[in-house]
Design a binder for these strands. Structure first.
Lengths: 346, 346
DNA sequence: GTGAAAGCGCTAACAC
DNA sequence: GTGTTAGCGCTTTCAC
């Protein structure tokens, strides 16, 4: 096994506690002693065992990050930013993936609780009550969700939805469709409410399709329904679904944006790759990841500070939105396979 | 603070060790006692503290996963699969990102060494010597890299490169270009050697441009050089670069595949989104992630088993490759901005 | 089948 | 400024 504090102490004829202090409170140790300890530690390859330290200090210097699906392109930039911020603040990060399952989510929080100083809940699918029960076990901060009593980092997707609907109405659209996100998504509710209110205020009608798994197939699957409904513009819960929708519409021979306009959320890199380039609400995910780590550390320290951080979103107008066409009836040329079908109401 | 083994024991008038055994060696405990302990643990919300357990058993039930860049779309499916496999085998996963920096990589290994049972090194950029030095600190398994003495999961990108070059030669291409990956990438070397050998064997010439940061801008930046060189087909180290290259060529007014054919590696989702759809060598990254966890746990257990797993790759022929056009001179219409420029040799 | 005791690597009073 | 001591939560001999 590798060297311990005791090995270093013995090699120097010092007591363990002096060596310990050299690492945990260097100013309390004679500068010459300190130098010798450091040198010997270096030579022996000694590194403090954080887990052992945690046992007595109560601080693990680890954080947990729980996301719904790492493979969803929305998350990697957030995970990366959180990891780097944690690192910069001398903490390591456990990353876990729930596959959109609230049960796994709750289990994960409990499993990690003892080995971390706090947990970042990213777009959690649990109920408020469940989250509230877990609060006793470990400090938590949510991202993309507001839970009473918890600090949170949220992105102003409501403002994004409002801007998107106004953009669409300005282009003459009067019948809009919204593809919502998965059951339990707080963001989806925010978008829905804001979109509905804005449509209402502008004399447009908003038809809601959902819940949907936040994957491309959901978009593809909904393409036909949206057309049959007669909507001339569609808001999708995220870019991945929006891209799936554009492909689904393409299969049906429906042109974007000539026949139907499409707006997504997130501004993932792929949204600039698809043709037409996707009009979308950009989310500052990296900033959110960094800010959430700061908030969590604050929480873990029992320090004061902001209870909530609201980050602005930006509507990126690109090529998937255009002037409204007169309503038309669609004759499907090819019906896309349904890989995932969700219940048709939320 | 939350309940400990001692609380449970006291509440039941038992000794700590009996409670301990209930969780770590249940068969050694009277089935009735066991039931009472479990019930009381449930009631008190007791959960074993893994860090404390690790201190005595030497097994943390944690693993580390170190990747070059989580935001690179190659990695998320691998991270996800590794995380789920680790979970399934009752281990948690630290995930860290090195930003392609070998120094950070080495530092990370040392920092995590004490809190994990092993580390997965994913496409490491360190030298063999550095990795070898770290072996003493913690069990490691590499992915996408062969290091003497370490177990590894590698994907047969050499076979992929060979298939790609043969495909290109079959289409009449005789002057090929290769955009290599970053310095320190083992995979890049494998691709290069296989591509060069295959070109050679087929009377074609392979010109090498590199090293390149594995990002889209590298591809965009190389577009002009590749054209000026006169190559009619290009192999890019990964899909992200290939996509950047296609966009760069587009800016130059060079048509893909009419003027220049492009092949990538990885088969990321975006490769099917870009037009023309990208011909690429698909890598089984999810399988690699799962297999690597198994190998690492084997290594940590000191168990026997495969020293190396070679996973097959598949050439996906799509729309970015076509028959060779006669060489032509390019008059740049617009020179793409250089965001990242790397040294022109490896 | 259960209890007693020692100790994993480290820190945190408290002496001196 | 350094040594002494106790103990964080747990497992693991060894008795009985």
């Amino acid at each position: 096994m590798s060297a311990t504090i005791r090995d270093v102490a013995r090699a120097l004829g010092l007591h363990m506690s002096t060596v310990s202090r050299t690492f945990s409170a260097p100013h309390l140790v004679n500068s010459d002693t300190r130098r010798r300890v450091l040198a010997m530690a270096e030579q022996l390859g000694y590194r403090p065992n954080r887990a052992a330290r945690a046992l007595v200090t109560g601080r693990t210097h680890n954080l947990g990050l729980i996301v719904a699906d790492i493979a969803n392109p929305f998350f990697p930039p957030l995970v990366k930013a959180a990891e780097q911020q944690a690192m910069a603040r001398d903490h390591h990060l456990f990353v876990a993936d729930t596959d959109e399952d609230p049960l796994i989510e709750a289990e994960l929080v409990q499993a990690l609780a003892k080995q971390v100083d706090g947990i970042l809940l990213c777009s959690p699918r649990m109920s408020n009550a469940q989250i509230d029960r877990l609060r006793a076990d470990v400090p938590m901060v949510t991202i993309n969700r507001r839970v009473p009593g918890l600090r949170a980092v949220v992105m102003d997707e409501a403002a994004g939805a409002k801007a998107a609907v106004e953009h669409l109405v300005g282009l003459g659209h009067r019948r809009l469709a919204l593809l919502t996100g998965p059951r339990g998504s707080w963001t989806s509710g925010q978008i829905r409410r804001a979109a509905a209110a804005t449509a209402d205020r502008n004399g447009a009608r908003l038809v809601v399709f959902g819940p949907n798994a936040p994957i491309a197939d959901s978009g593809a699957t909904r393409a036909r329904q949206v057309c049959e409904d007669g909507a001339t513009a569609v808001l999708a819960y995220n870019d991945v679904m929006a891209i799936g929708l554009i492909e689904g519409l393409d299969h049906l021979g429906v042109r974007v944006p000539a026949d139907v306009s499409v707006v997504g959320f997130d501004d993932i890199p792929a949204s600039r790759l698809i043709r037409p380039k996707l009009t979308t609400v950009a989310n500052p995910t990296a900033s959110a990841g960094r800010a959430a780590v700061d908030l969590l550390l604050q929480e873990a320290d029992g320090a004061l500070g902001a209870a909530e951080l609201m980050l602005p979103t930006t509507l990126m107008i690109r090529d998937s939105t255009g002037r409204a066409a007169p309503p038309r009836v669609v004759r499907p040329t090819r019906i896309p396979r349904t890989l995932t079908s969700a219940e048709p109401k939320e």
